[in-house]
């Protein structure tokens, strides 16, 4: 096969077929996909379904700790997982710029398959389009996914009550910090790895073992501060977190302080933040700490009566202040 993607690879003709056979089927190989129908025929699923989609336009495509392929699978798997679902099937759509190296595409597809396998999901249907050189930046990937929510599980803001605890599964800001270091325009060299990872084995354990689990989210774009504000928005409670309890790697702080970035607003790609009843908080924390992606988990705050709908931060010097949502954008093209 030639070593660059051409318009012919998106034509639907012989080049498309070869690409499907020699790249996509080679890695994604599973009985449903292998039928190569226009749509995937799925087995019967009983119970409540969960459905999510996520598009990925990250630059650079390969970064310490991950690549666009791992990110694209983890993105949708994690969206399903934090809703309490067990992810089952994924679709993927590629938009590829003419001239993209096929060896890079193969690396990305291999990484997608490895991540999908780790998550226990199959990629069962897909699509490829090629656009003229200059009309995209290398490759964009969309994934969508279906998962099943166990019976009797319903995670929602309206179950949250004052006294509940807020837990984060590990250090914040790692992904965005890694991308900042990987971007040439900042001319920074740093030894920071993205936390890009699937979270579904951890969320499934929590769903199964922690009856007091109220809600889970993955703090991606906008970071921890934005997710907490989404929890509290229009609700009959407020949240308070403690600055000195929030786990942040020294390397990330060392990058953020001089650059003026705030880790509270920086994207994570393999973390979850949960709200859990006070009674079950220690149990949830222990489950997290016992899991390989939750070793640095910490209780960082609690649900409070007042001020309603707002998030407070107890600062390092001991004063309360409002912690608001991210306004605008810190850094474009981070996922």
């Amino acid at each position: 096969m030639d070593n660059k993607i051409t318009k012919a690879h998106g034509s639907g003709g012989i080049f498309s077929h070869n690409l499907i056979k020699e790249v996509f089927l080679k890695y994604f190989d599973n009985p449903i996909l292998n039928q190569l129908r226009d749509a995937a025929l799925l087995n019967q699923i009983n119970g409540k379904l969960c459905f999510a989609t996520d598009s990925h336009v990250i630059r650079p495509l390969f970064f310490p700790g991950g690549d666009i392929g791992k990110l694209a699978v983890a993105g949708t798997v994690n969206d399903l997982a934090v809703c309490g679902a067990k992810p089952l099937y994924l679709s993927c759509g590629f938009i590829i710029e003419e001239g993209f190296p096929i060896s890079d595409l193969e690396k990305i597809v291999a990484s997608m398959q490895k991540t999908a396998q780790d998550a226990g999901v199959n990629i069962v249907t897909g699509d490829t389009k090629v656009v003229e050189k200059g009309n995209a930046d290398g490759i964009y990937i969309n994934t969508a996914g279906v998962g099943k929510i166990p019976d009797n599980i319903s995670l929602a803001e309206n179950t949250i009550t004052p006294g509940d605890r807020i837990i984060i599964s590990g250090t914040i800001g790692d992904h965005e910090a890694a991308i900042i270091c990987a971007r040439e325009e900042f001319k920074i060299t740093g030894n920071i790895s993205s936390d890009c990872n699937i979270v579904n084995s951890l969320t499934e354990k929590l769903v199964k073992n922690v009856p007091g689990l109220r809600i889970m989210r993955d703090p991606t774009r906008g970071g921890l501060a934005t997710i907490l504000n989404e929890f509290a928005d229009k609700q009959n409670f407020g949240l308070r977190i403690y600055e000195d309890k929030i786990p942040i790697k020294n390397s990330v702080r060392g990058l953020c302080e001089p650059m003026g970035f705030d880790p509270l607003y920086m994207a994570n790609e393999g973390k979850i933040v949960i709200i859990v009843s006070n009674n079950d908080a220690d149990k949830a924390l222990a489950i997290m700490k016992d899991h390989k992606i939750g070793k640095d988990a910490k209780i960082i705050g609690e649900v409070i009566e007042e001020p309603k709908s707002r998030v407070l931060l107890k600062t390092q010097i001991g004063s309360d202040r409002i912690l608001d949502m991210l306004t605008g954008e810190m850094l474009p093209r981070i996922c």
Partner: peptide, 16 residues
């Protein structure tokens, strides 16, 4: 560096 910054955010010094 981070430890150095923390000295300038020390709650006890702030209080005093």
């Amino acid at each position: 560096m981070v430890k150095y910054i923390d000295e300038f955010r020390n709650p006890n010094i702030a209080k005093s």
